[in-house]
Amino acid sequence: MRILQLVTRFDFGGAENHVRELCNELVANNHQVILVSRNGRQKELLDNRVIFIPIPSLVSNFILAQAILIVYLNVRHKIDVIHAHQRLPIITACLAGFISRVPVVATVHGRVRHDLRSVIARKFASKIIFVSNQVLTISRHFESIKHKSVVIPNGIPIPQKFPKIESFTIGYFSRIDERHFEVIKNLVLAVEKFTNDYPNIKLLLIGDGKEVEKLKLMIHDSNLRLNDNVIQYRGFVENLEDWSSFPELVFGVGRVAIEALARGANVLSVNYKRMGEIISLSNYGQYALNNFVNISGIPPTSEKMYSQLKLYYQKRNEYRAETPALALKIENDFSISKTTQSIVEVYSTVS
């Protein structure tokens, strides 16, 4: 099958990581893949069998110009299906697909109101993939699109072995932008307070973005107050497979939660909008259905984070004992091979 993938940018993030791994898995299964996107650091991790076509930043927001390019690629490469991710690529793909009579599959990675805001996207997408059940059912357009919608979670390459777990180490992986910075600020405050109970605790912050300098200043001030190097910024990480050790407890949702559970870490479900619980065997099914987001949660605060930290370390042995079974569930439910197989089945229904 000849597949054209579209994504806005190709740097690091949940959607971008998924696109890269999906492309690599597709070519490993003898499909032909062309990826169109702005340049980014993910390009270095692409299988060399994937044809990467960069879009100059200056024209990346011009839908008509991109649509003409996609029509040209559809005709030249006899594309069987276009798979678009994020709002502008979805609209562009739908226009180009309509003109060149090529079916379009769109994946909504979380921001349903944003990605499906355009009537063009809702009308002309042949199939719409949602990464969680909640993302689909909360859509105000649910009734009009449910007949062509399917839930397929993002998958990951399953690690071959567990890394060494860094005891009493907390990890937070994210873009360092305004929204995540607020979560990090609350987490730093919670960890500062928690050092009174566990003086050997450590917080690792991993990521890159516009708020990095502001983050470094906050870390410096926090460590001065603690008179220790408790908060550490590890910066940009290209590939988790290179890590020989991993934090014991990770704060996050979605792909971050999946990657952490697969590596034998415990996970506390939290993002900038919703505070959740520590993932356990008893609540795994509920969280897995909704991309590891607490769909009824409220925004996190430092007090709530502190309470969850205290609960985790009070029951630490119980939570740690569940990690092998949780990792096995991730392997069964979220491997990139299983996800790709499900997506190819969607391609087959429209092409």
Rank of each mutant, 00 (worst) to 15 (best):
M1K: 11
K127P: 07
L116S: 01
K214N: 14
G254C: 12
S60P: 05
N266W: 02
K315P: 00
L261K: 03
L4H: 02
T323V: 15
F181D: 06
E259H: 05
T92W: 01
N39W: 11
I165R: 00
S269L: 04
V7M: 02
G155I: 00
R20M: 12
V346C: 06
Q66L: 12
A321Y: 04
L69K: 09
G171D: 04
G276C: 00
L289N: 10
F236K: 09
K146Y: 09
D242R: 07
I152H: 06
S139E: 03
S302Q: 12
K214Q: 14
N239I: 04
F292W: 07
F334Y: 12
S348H: 15
I298N: 11
L6K: 00
F10C: 07
I165N: 04
A93T: 11
Q5I: 07
I258P: 03
V112L: 06
E322H: 06
I343D: 01
L309C: 10
K310Y: 11
R117A: 15
I278V: 14
L95S: 00
L46V: 13
P153D: 08
A327Y: 00
V50D: 01
R76N: 05
K127W: 02
L289S: 11
V27I: 12
E44C: 09
R111T: 06
L46F: 06
I99P: 08
H147P: 01
P324A: 09
L268E: 03
D208I: 12
F251R: 13
Q32H: 12
I3W: 00
N317C: 10
A325T: 07
I91S: 04
D115P: 06
M305E: 04
P163Q: 11
F142R: 11
V108F: 10
N154E: 09
H31N: 15
A190S: 15
N317L: 14
L240D: 01
N196P: 02
I91E: 10
L224T: 08
P199G: 08
M275T: 12
S296R: 11
C94W: 04
T107L: 10
K216C: 10
I79H: 00
S307W: 07
E213R: 14
R320L: 15
A262H: 04
V108N: 14
V112E: 10
K185R: 15
S126E: 13
Y284A: 07
C94T: 10
V135P: 01
K202C: 15
I343A: 06
G276A: 05
Y347F: 15
L226D: 08
N154P: 03
I3V: 15
L189Y: 13
S302W: 03
S282D: 14
K146L: 08
L215H: 08
V350K: 09
S118D: 11
S139R: 02
F52N: 03
R274E: 13
E277H: 09
G297K: 10
L35I: 08
Q86I: 08
Q32N: 12
R9K: 14
V135Y: 08
E166F: 09
H147K: 15
D208Y: 11
L88V: 13
I158V: 07
N17A: 10
E211N: 13
